[in-house]
Amino acid sequence: MSKIHLIENLAVSDSGFLFLHTTGETFTLNKTGSEIVRMLRSRKSKEEILKFFTENYIVDTNTIEKDFEELVAQLKFYSLVTEK
């Protein structure tokens, strides 16, 4: 199963602010997005992340999976993640 990895030179702050060391680009995430990115940084798998959200928030699996995929698509667009 493939796993999403954040690239190395990406600084992730507690507030959900991303700063790419190599280009100076910055990105702002909402609370859900920053939680997902922090979990990706901790090398959690997609399944672990979805499980965390459904257990700790009032959200069904389909909704959080859709949010997760949308975020990952954006992170891929900006080359902030790799999939292995």
Binding site: N9, L20, H21, T22, T23, G24
Partner: peptide
């Protein structure tokens, strides 16, 4: 990060390239 109409950097950030 911010460039004036004269092309001068009005704001910038250190990066590693």
């Amino acid at each position: 990060l911010y460039i004036t109409d004269k092309g001068k950097g009005w704001s910038g950030v250190t990066i590693l390239d």
